[in-house]
Amino acid sequence: MNRNKLSEFLIEKGLLITAVFSIIIILVILLFIIIQGFPAVYEIGFFKFVFGLSWFPSDSQYGLLPMIVCSVYVTLLSLVMAVPLSLLSSIFMTEIAPDNLTRFVKPVIETLAGIPSVVYGFFGLTVLVPLMREIFGGTGFSLFTASIILAVMILPTIISVSQEALRSVPVHYKEASLGLGATDWQTIKNITVPCALPGIITAIILGMGRAIGETLAVMMVAGNVVNIPGSIFDPVRTITSNIALEMGYAMGIHYNALFASAIVLFLIILILLVIAKYVQNKYKMDIRGS
């Protein structure tokens, strides 16, 4: 009996260790990035690093602002393209489409989500870039091209999370609306979507996180020129692409500066997640409150 109790105890503690492991890993990741990034922030100065306008490693100038601005632009433009399309199609799949069509669409979305980002980048490079060159002139490598590729890549994230939100709206809410003589669309517009809104916002925030973090696909079609773009057809370089482009040969303070830009990325993602959490918690309160 005692031996059994001992082994039960050991198993429980062993499982506890595996559970804490992911937290430890995050701390180790954070620790290592900070250790490697800190010398750069210290030497360059925080404000000069984050708000500096020029990035010339060969001239010891490390200003991240153009990259931050480009990351934000690319992300926002991709959201502008992806959000309406993915919300409308989520509504279509959960509220309108017959069940067997929905069953067929689910693997389509999963496949879109599973395609490696490099394949999207490659498709952008061989199809989209020449097409853009043809239509708008220039090189074809631009903020606009990168945003299109990103929009396609974040579609599955936004669709699957907002579908879940739409599905979790209680059926009797909709039935009450339909019972009052509202059309399907009136019910969707006035009942289903407002009820699912916090989930939909979470979906958009997650898509945003994915867009900001995407590296190679953006890098393959964005042109990678360090500047603050004047038009959406200018070539741009994001924070992530900058790391991937320069890490291979970076030395000394340049190497540290790239880690420091990873800290900036880490913080952006953390802020987005906290906002998503806040929205979710508020939603839970609302459901209980009503």
Binding site: S22, T215, L265
Partner: peptide, 25 residues
Amino acid sequence: GFVRFGAEILASLPSIVFGLFGLAF
């Protein structure tokens, strides 16, 4: 709550951050 939030952070960190960590660590 901690473990779940930790998993969410890990799931949404940019892959290039893992790349840098892999190199340094």
